[in-house]
Design a protein around this nucleic acid. Structure first.
Lengths: 355, 355
DNA sequence: AGGGTCGGATAGAGCGCTCTCCCAGGGTTC
DNA sequence: GAACCCTGGGAGAGCGCTCTATCCGACCCT
């Protein structure tokens, strides 16, 4: 509490050293726990630290260690070049992003992994080319040690730019163009197969699917997995309606499907939000779920258990995947020379009431 | 691109100065736009900056300016001292937090405000006393310029600790103990009044409420506002069931209410998630919403419009409130001497189909 | 006993930037 | 024409930390 300098100033290493009667270097060593320090002196230093209320200045430390203990968590949007989007548009992007429970799960997984390791996530968006430049500049300034990138679209140039600049990064989902960059992904095709086979095994004969936006690789893969499986069971040409991964779009898609194929008895939705929308519409049209029409979702998000009836769905372990992403990045930071490794997770079918 | 130093190293101010044939100070002036610099020299410097691919080192800058352009966005939990909670418990806290659409909206509002101003949010949690200490240490290290605190419970000691340490901060929701700290809040009582009056005006005669957890001030206020209004209309003693602001707890509360008061014709739920749960349960019990039982929610979150039927609800402008919070903090940083000011937002009733 | 070794502490050189001086030179004022 | 100001640029001192090189003394070996 004794502050020998100007009262407002935070105590520095120097102050602690003086209080403990040792040199700055010794205090530094005690604080960072490097090399052997005499236990008695160690104790004296600790005393001095707590009596001065010392907290090491992070900027000064960063300046010499070249580490910030910060990780940029960037949500990257469409690759659209037109920068004419105003602030209103930008706002809608971020609003849209967080409306999806998916991102909450990603954040949860990352935070839980990073936190016990003393690293902190800095939230960033890169939906316009200007925002992308800002993210790049941020990283190049050494403001963060690396980036965790969640891309919503395949053509996203950010992963390429980041690796090109030699910045450590890990992606959620495989990039469109193969790049020398680590990523974490799900075996979407296998997941879709699980869903299709479950519907078939249940005895459904007229099965349709509501796909996600087809410019998103995950949506393509899920659709492809569904189609392959159906074809393998001699049921090629199942009806498809494209949605946007939102509940509203799921409702609209279900309406279309129902209008064209009133007799369908099974639906595979590309995610739980759309499945929820589909259930609503089915019920409004007097169809019982699962008695008349069985519905399978994808993700096993909060929406799946909240839905009435609770959704049978394909589990994507988002939190685990996000944690793995953070783990890969930290590994990379610890050993930059090692080649980029990626991890593919296997989905699991979670059977509830909707199918 | 010409790098006179060791190839891997990032260019420094010195390098740019050499390339432009001026001093470090001049380059710094051009980059930070301070004082007059000869246009020709300015141009030369810009040239040099882009040819060297220079990006100012943030740590070095922070060290002297004492600013980081980072803001800690801390989600603060219960005040529970018992630190015996393992990592599993911690994980469940963060998972729980992001399952609520509320936090997504807060993040959206904050990010949209901070971003154009070149500030970056660092995500932190402070649900245990250890985590709280870490947040405090982080702030005291000068790792962030200030804190935006979203407390989920009233007894949270963090606001007090932060102000005590003289760290700039702004809260979402008024603190339990009056503290010299800015905050942003909603007139919850008025919101509840709006809801109650709407149900009464609709002709509902047997109105119950599902409150949020009563250790949360917002939940208390909403309940108090509801009760006051009912009493003022000669209907004191309306049934109350306590929930936890989750859909599941809303379902459970509705079950209890229905068991004891099968004849009720109106429900005011403390938030939209619980209102959604209530709707599910009502329908399962054969009650039509709104014909048999009218339901009003609170928040106007995504859940309100996603619900079937779409919920009549009390709008809490979370994004605006969060942006205001960020605004108050930046004001405070710009003028530390000014007294703390707070802002209370007025809720609005949004009439949809459920009541 | 002398030289080698090694644990344990210090001195001091930066890390890359900002910012306060200080100086040169040209214009203004009386 | 001298004293003054004002604009634009440079020199250099630090910000608080880490880390290498160095030193000191105690201990061991022959």
């Amino acid at each position: 509490m004794t502050d020998p300098r100007s009262p407002g100033a935070a105590p520095t290493l120097e102050d602690v050293a003086r209080a403990a009667g040792v040199s700055r270097a010794t205090v530094s060593r005690v604080i960072n726990g490097v090399r052997n320090v005499d236990p008695a002196i160690q104790e004296a230093v600790r005393q001095a630290v707590s009596s001065t209320g010392y907290a090491p200045n992070r900027a000064a430390r960063s300046l010499v260690t070249r580490r910030t203990d910060a990780i940029a968590l960037v949500v990257s949007g469409a690759g659209g070049e037109p920068d004419g989007e105003g602030p209103a548009e930008e706002g809608s992007f971020t609003a849209q992003v967080f409306a999806d429970p998916f991102f909450g799960r990603v954040v949860t997984g990352i935070v839980n992994y990073l936190r016990p390791r003393g690293m902190h996530p800095v939230l960033m968006f890169a939906e316009t080319s200007r925002a992308r430049d800002e993210v790049l500049a941020y990283l190049r300034q050494g403001s963060a040690d690396g980036a965790l990138i969640v891309s919503t679209h395949a053509q996203d140039p950010l992963p390429g730019l980041v690796t090109e600049a030699g910045l450590p990064a890990v992606l959620y989902a495989r990039p469109a163009r193969p790049t020398r960059i680590s990523y974490v992904d799900l075996a979407h095709r296998d997941g879709a197969r699980l869903a299709a086979e479950h519907l078939l095994a249940r005895g459904c004969r007229r099965i349709a699917t509501i796909s996600g936006p087809l410019d998103i690789p995950a949506a393509q893969e899920r659709l492809a997995g569904f189609r392959d499986t159906m074809a393998r069971h001699g049921r090629a040409g199942a009806p498809v309606a494209e949605g946007l991964f939102t509940q509203e779009s799921g409702e609209a898609a279900m309406e279309r499907l129902l209008a064209e194929h009133p007799d369908l008895d099974g639906v595979f939705a590309g995610n739980d939000l759309m499945a929820t929308g589909a259930c609503h519409v089915l019920r409004e049209h007097g169809r019982r779920v699962p008695e008349d029409v069985a519905v399978v979702g994808f993700d096993d998000s909060r929406a799946a258990s909240a839905c009435r009836p609770p959704l049978t769905t394909v589990r994507q372990p988002v939190e685990d995947m996000a944690a793995e992403m953070a783990g890969l990045l930290l590994d990379r930071l610890a050993a930059p020379e090692r080649p980029a490794t990626s991890v593919i997770f296997e989905p699991v079918l979670v059977v509830r009431d909707s199918a």
